[in-house]
């Protein structure tokens, strides 16, 4: 927030300096006129040109600053989403983070996370929210058995699909990849009422989810599985020692 404030202050300061320069020129011209000295038209023209150039520079700077602030704002969202996805090794917390990104950053009202089962046979609905109403029957059970053309196509070719999608209620179908392999999809089925459509900048967030969501979840699941095995082994060792 401090960076944005100082940028605005800088632009305001530049504008103020320009205004002062204009006043000084006016005062100078008035003094010269009173002293009976005529300002040459060439000098006036040069001054006016330089003033116009400076004004244009300030406008350009203000435009660039606004664009930079928008970019910083987008990067903040991406940074926090990535940070939070990898901040835990608990599968439930990773799923919770994916849901929070979908709701709070994308504005999703209804969505489902579909993942390929271990061993590569079938797909589980690992996460579903907001599916109580609407034509979402294929996503409402514990398993996804196919049926949505866009989801089936993305599971096959790994392409991101955005609305309007023929024969599918989905707003976005995001492929989830681990080391380049398609392991599932995030299907955004409905946006919040006050968000009529995805914005161009949402694409970066969808790309981030595509690259990071599944890998964070798989890493957490592997860790949880190894942790369980370790605890079992420790218990067995204690039992064998008679502790």
């Amino acid at each position: 927030m401090a960076g944005g404030e100082s940028s605005k202050e800088l632009v305001e300061e530049l504008k103020g300096t320009l205004e002062k320069a204009r006043e000084l020129v006016r005062e100078l011209e008035a003094k010269l006129a009173r002293a009976g000295v005529a300002v040459t038209s060439a000098g006036e023209g040069d001054l006016a040109q330089r003033l116009a150039r400076t004004e244009a520079d300030v406008k350009e700077l203000a435009t660039q600053l606004a664009a930079s602030e928008r970019q910083i704002s987008r990067l903040m969202n991406l940074y926090v989403a990535t940070y939070q996805l990898h901040a835990t090794l608990t599968p439930e917390e990773v799923l919770q983070t994916i849901a929070e990104i979908a709701v709070n950053l994308l504005g999703a009202d209804a969505f489902a996370l579909i993942l390929r089962r271990d061993g590569g046979t079938g797909f589980e609905v690992a996460l579903a929210q907001g599916l109580a109403s609407g034509p979402y029957a294929v996503f409402s059970g514990p398993e996804y058995q196919g049926g949505d053309p866009a989801v089936d196509a993305t599971l096959a070719d790994g392409m991101l699909r955005l609305a309007p999608i023929p024969n599918s209620p989905a707003v976005a179908v995001v492929p989830l990849k681990v080391q380049g392999e398609i392991v599932g999809v995030l299907v955004v089925l409905k946006l919040l009422p006050h968000k009529p459509a995805l914005r161009p900048e949402d694409r970066e967030l969808l790309d981030l989810l595509s690259a990071h969501a599944a890998s964070a979840l798989f890493a957490a699941r592997i860790f949880a599985s190894k942790d369980r095995r370790l605890r079992t082994l420790e218990s067995l060792i204690k039992l064998a020692r008679g502790e």
């Binding site: 927030m1 401090a2 903040m76 926090v80 983070t97 929070e100 709070n104």
Partner: peptide, 16 residues
Amino acid sequence: DSKLMLRMYEVMLRGT
């Protein structure tokens, strides 16, 4: 109640 949002506020309001 979202840890993501709390982290977001910390980042957005850096310096405060």
